[in-house]
Structure formats: C-alpha cells, structure tokens
Amino acid sequence: MTLPKSKSTPESAIEKKPIPWHIVFFLGPALLIYLTFSVYPLLDTLVLSLYDEQKGQSSFVGLQNFITLISDDNWSSAFWNALANNFQFFIIHMLVQNPIGLLLAVLLSSPKLRFSGSYRTFIFMPTMLSVVIIGFVWQLLLSPIWGISENFLYHLGLDHYFDAWLGKESSALITLSFISVWQFVGIPMMLIYATLLNIPDDIVDASVVDGANPMQTFWYIKLPLILPTIAMVSILTFVANFNAFELIYAVKGALAGPNFSTDLMGTFFYRTFFGFQLQEGSATMGAAVATLMFLIILVGIMLFLFFVQRRIQRFQF
C-alpha cells in the first residue's frame, strides 16, 4: 500500500497546525466518562485507604490500614484465607474452564459437526443469565432436601457419593468454582472459536497435503495460532476471578460460610466496606482491601506480560 501523497505545499507545512478539534470532539465524551467513573473512583479509593475514620472524623494514617490488614491477627487471618481461597478459585478455572473451553471450541469448529450453531448457543446461554439465577438454580439442584442430584446419582449407582456439597467446609469452594466454570465456559469457547475460524484453510490444507494427521494439525498448526487468544483468556480469567463476588454472595451470603471456606477477596471486601450484621462497615479499611486487590491484579498482569505475553509469537495472514 502506498501512502497518499501529501497535499500540503512546503509553505503550509511551516504554518502552525490548527488544533485538531475533531479529535477532542470525538474522544472527549468517552474520556470524560472514563475519567469520572473509572479513574477518579480508583484514585479516590487509593487515597481513602490512607485515612482512618472514627466517629465521623477522618484523619491521615499513612499505611496503617495495610499494616493492620497484614499483621493484626483479626484481619490478617481473614485476608490470607480469602487470598488463598481466591488462588484456589483461579486455579480451578484455569485447569477446568479454559481447557474445556478450548475443547468445545475445537469440536464446534469441526466442519463435520451438525447443529454446531445450536450447541454454541446452548453452551453460551448460562453466561448470559444472571448470577443470582445461576446461584439459585444450582442451590436447588444440589440441595439434599429438594434437589435432583441425589436421584440422578442413584440412577447411575453413585448415590452414596452424594453429600451436602455446598454446606461442607471441604467441598463448598470447589463446588462453587465448578458452578462458576459451568456458567462462564462459554466465553473462552467463543473467543477461541472465533480465532479458530480465522485460521486460513490453505494453511490447514497444506499440512494435510504434507501428511499431517488431525492431531498433528491441531498441535503444530492450530494451537500455535490460537496461543495469543489463550493468553488473553488467561488474563481475563485472572482479573475476573480476583474480582469475583456475586456468585459467592448469592449462594453463601456475605459471611461466605461455612467458617469462611468460600471467602474470596470480593466478599472479604464487601464485609469490610459495608459491614455485616453487627460488624460495622469501614470505608477506609474497605478501601485498603480494594487497593490490595487492585495491586494483586496489577502485579499478576505485569508478571504475565513480562514472562508470557512477550514470548508469544503473533502471526499475520
């Protein structure tokens, strides 16, 4: 492609360029909304976390909130517990949700599959439902009192494995992770599916002509081409998991029971910021928790960018 020839003569090039009002006009509104509703609250949260509020009087306390959060037993045990749970939640998503998403995408993109449009819609459907509905439906399905799970397992001869999964400390978080995986598996599937459709047929044809079997075509041709998408899916999973809140709140409430075994950073933040039952909320301490969440996500993404993203090769067709 050749660049269009500049129309300007040497004289006019020396002249001052007029202010590009049209750029201001087009970017302005979006920028204003972004600054007001995203950047300002973020900065304000960071600032708020450095203050303490007692009886309506706020005072600057530096990093005291963070020190309390990490060193005071009352706070730190809850904080580390929430963080550890959050990593478990994330790892389950990475190990279950994304591989299944990939598998589904590969199956869907197979030209031999009939009704692929219907499958795509059905698998994506839960993602579009409200988390509250998902939480309610799964609670009913898994309920030892009204649920159908036990009967279902009975017909498979597995009923003695049935338990009150959502109520046991050992299984509640894993169960909730699987519910979340079930709901959101459509997103990695869609993203990877779209990338797979973009792979030019001639590359795949060439590999077949060269004698590659379908597995080899997948491993040596398709997978390298969708790696950037998988990397992006991982980042999205990371950010979303460390901001996760709704499902836990909908199913287990803000106390994230039993015994805080399903507590994530989001629910921990909620209890700290808004308070719970007789525990009073603290905006400043809540802001400190929110700031730590922000930092954890920031560091996670930066590590990812430095060590993974830079090494991924991109291909242009």
Binding site: F37, S38, V39, P41, L42, D44, T45, H93, Q97, S180, V181, Q183, F184, I187, P188, V233, L236, T237, V239, A240, N241, N243, A244, L247, G266, F269, F273, F274, A287, A290, M293, F294, I297
Partner: peptide, 16 residues
Amino acid sequence: MLKARPVTLLKQSAIS
C-alpha cells in the same frame, strides 16, 4: 468466571 471488570467498579458499585 470470566467477566472483564475493573477493580474500580467496587467503589462504583457502592455509589450506584
């Protein structure tokens, strides 16, 4: 779960 949402939303959600 996979829903891109910036952390600032937490504060915003309080406001909204």
